[in-house]
């Protein structure tokens, strides 16, 4: 088997507070192969964005990686000094965030920002970089790209801005893009445009993507594999079609049932009672057990690891081959 492009092993992210240490992400392990799109889905507070931030080294203090390792092309990047991490960010890992305005500097034209990013990471002359900037803008579907390089971020609409951000993320031809809720702030019709664009570009460039979102629909359209997170842990992972059509973990089952659909006409949506525990009150055993319709004794005390469940893997004692 090929070596994975990105490998995350037993990642643990902690937030020390005055009331004790909060564990926001715990025992998270996954891989992304070259050119693969991994969807990371979960509700707010599940730790999906933190995992993304940890990979690109942008974890906000006081958050810290407390355990585990992150490997890019077999090389550890979680202990790198700031300067080395900065070079990797942009060159080898690109990033797209929810709010396009936050990723763009309002004081510089988008042409300047693109040229600067390109020249920081690639050995190109000013003129070559400028040409590449225009090509990139054309590629992300910005009309009259050459003319618009002189425009400032506020002169673009929300959808166009997110296109510019994608162009910036792709500027140095990175191997991996971390896209954190790239379509959440956009209107429905623009969302579809951006997803289509992201999919096409990553296929053309062979870029791997870690797509972090709360929207199962976006995952279904875009991802090859999916990892479902709950309370800082991965509870299920597998090929996207299997996870969506035949979810294994009771949480994923509930999550899929709770999505309203325009195809089915249902009186009630499947509902998971309660809400995700706060970080300071994660229950022992399986963190989902207080809300789980299929809970049994073992779930209260023992924490399940990911185990084989058909073509997927689920962190649930229901799938334990060797009963305790």
């Amino acid at each position: 088997m090929n070596r994975p492009l990105l490998e995350v092993r037993h990642l643990r992210i902690e937030f020390p507070t005055r009331r004790g240490v909060l564990v926001a992400v715990d025992e998270v392990s996954f891989t992304i192969g070259p050119g693969e799109v991994l969807g990371v889905v979960g509700e707010s507070g599940a730790g999906k964005s933190l995992t993304g931030a940890a990979i690109i080294g942008l974890l906000e203090p006081p958050g810290r990686i407390a355990a585990g390792e992150i490997l890019l092309d077999g090389e550890r990047i979680d202990r790198l000094p700031h300067e080395a991490m900065r070079r990797i960010r942009g060159r080898r890992i690109g990033a797209i965030f929810q709010d396009p305005l936050a990723s763009l500097d309002p004081l510089f034209s988008i042409g300047q920002q693109l040229v600067e990013t390109i020249r920081t990471h690639l050995p190109l002359s000013e003129g070559e970089a400028r040409k590449r900037a225009v090509d990139l803008l054309q590629e992300v579907g910005i009309p009259a790209a050459a003319r618009r390089t002189g425009h400032y971020p506020h002169q673009f609409s929300g959808g166009m801005r997110q296109r510019v951000v994608i162009a910036l993320a792709l500027a140095a031809n990175p191997q991996l893009i971390i896209a954190d809720e790239p379509t959440t702030a956009l209107d429905v019709s623009i969302q579809a445009q951006i997803i289509t664009l992201l999919k096409r570009l990553c296929r053309d460039h062979g870029t791997a993507v870690m797509l972090v979102t709360h929207d199962m629909g976006v995952i279904a359209e875009t991802a090859d594999r999916v990892a479902v997170m709950y309370a800082g842990r991965i509870v299920e992972t597998g090929p996207v079609a299997d996870v969506i059509n035949a979810p294994k973990h009771p949480y994923t089952v509930g999550l899929m049932g709770s999505i309203p659909s325009i195809v089915a006409d249902r009186d009630r949506l499947v509902q998971i009672d309660g809400s995700m525990p706060r970080l300071n009150a994660i229950p022992p055993g399986c963190p989902f057990h207080p809300r789980c319709p299929r809970v049994f004794d073992r779930c209260l005390h023992e924490r399940p690891d990911l185990m084989d469940a058909g073509s997927s893997r689920a962190a649930c004692w229901l799938y334990d081959k060797v009963p305790a």
Binding site: A192, G217, A220, A241, S261
Partner: peptide, 12 residues
């Protein structure tokens, strides 16, 4: 029609 088309297709 456009709005309906834009809904991500979960059923794939």
């Amino acid at each position: 029609r456009m709005l309906l088309d834009a809904i991500p297709d979960i059923a794939m």
